[in-house]
Design a protein around this nucleic acid. Sequence first.
DNA 1: CCAAAAGTGTTGCAATTACACCCATGC
DNA 2: GCATGGGTGTAATTGCAACACTTTTGG
Lengths: 256, 256
Amino acid sequence: MAPPHGNRLLSRKDIEQFFERGVHTHLPGLCVICAVFGFHDPNLSLLLAKWKGVNLWSLPGGYVLRRESLDAAARRVLYVHTGIRTDHLKQFRTFGGPNRTGAKLRSFYAKLGIRVPADAWPFRRIVTVGYYAFVDSGKIRARTDYMLDVCGWYPVNGRPRLSFNHEQATRLALEALRGRLDAPAAGVSLLPKRFTMPELQHLHEAVLGTRLDRRNFQKRMLEGGRLERLAERRQGGAHRAPYLYRFRSDRPQDDF
Amino acid sequence: MAPPHGNRLLSRKDIEQFFERGVHTHLPGLCVICAVFGFHDPNLSLLLAKWKGVNLWSLPGGYVLRRESLDAAARRVLYVHTGIRTDHLKQFRTFGGPNRTGAKLRSFYAKLGIRVPADAWPFRRIVTVGYYAFVDSGKIRARTDYMLDVCGWYPVNGRPRLSFNHEQATRLALEALRGRLDAPAAGVSLLPKRFTMPELQHLHEAVLGTRLDRRNFQKRMLEGGRLERLAERRQGGAHRAPYLYRFRSDRPQDDF
DNA sequence: CCAAAAGTGTTGCAATTACACCCATGC
DNA sequence: GCATGGGTGTAATTGCAACACTTTTGG
């Protein structure tokens, strides 16, 4: 995955350029949003951004270039706003009500002192393709581009209230994520190469929002032989040392 | 659902108008397609259209008006091309590769003798929101608008090969349809108000593409008490007369 | 030595699958 | 009367959920 825009996040200049030339470089009337769920044992969080100078929280999102796929747009947009890279973005729904607009953004750009055409397409009706992803929020720190005051991880339960229709989008994305948990090797990419059974269990529990039985969980994970137990145990924690496991790499992993 | 365009299907004049004024009335770069599955005991079919004068088969599709939702666009588009109305269109996927274009359509309009701007947006890159539906192909006859030679039902296995990416879209739509079969009351709207258990079973078998056990099927359908058996039986067929059932209407039906 | 986490197997229930016989009807 | 489809119940299996005791480790 080549770094888009080099390694920079969006700058003020990028935004000004977008409003000057965006109609040539981007697909008008279309945007993508990314519901990025983060896991850091044992917590499930959501990547949220607060727009600079206004009381506006949302999922990270942005516009689609004329020469890139929607999937690539989701990856790039996530990167240029938050510095986060992932290849595991999946579509969950496209939103296209006639009253969905970016009208709220006008005052945002006004406060930043960025001159924008009053009728630029980002302020008018917009169709939004929703993506979700699941990453390790311990490893991955979010940065903030020029447009944002804050960008970071918030607990899924007890997060700021989101604007646009992102509350609804988040609910749908979480449902989609839950539906993927029974896939073989679900969640592997969020754990270190060698991980313990309790760690894997916490991941599942965080996503499902429920508690699971240790023994039944272990049985389910081991059946099918995708996991391999190592001789070694994880030392250093309090209490009895748990075994380490790793995923057998010879099998295809759909994963998150 | 108010009849769009009165009760007319698309005429030559509508198409000419679209290419003159469409940029004002429609959202550019966006279209919807409808994978409409039809059931007529015991066959599962798919609604397909052959474009006039060219060897081009596809799912029915069309463009989105500036003032309508995507869902409404899917309903309207289906109607104005095929005369079919349904409220049960559901989204299954949005396709947005950078090479998806309507370039093939240029020669189509040329053969029809319709003057179109060479660079009109329908020939350039287009993002497509896919919808699917499930209707009674016995009750519902498809008509053909001005653009089509043929529009009708074809067996899902053994249909003409589809252009654009509609083969892939059809596969994804069928998967989505199958996933809805375990919903309560799945498939009711495709059957007469009073129907027999074998009829309901054939419907499920057609969608799943497998055979089911009569007794187990009946058990599953009856548990939960959504079906009510009537005293009457369906007379007139060969062999033993099966009971009639109807759905209890006091319960919410998601259905297809 | 106590608290807290991790390892391990069995049992019971519920859901699903498999299966066989009788009945009604048309030809 | 026979072939065909429809009606019904039970037995076997499978999958899932519930559950208790022992081991290890740090404090």
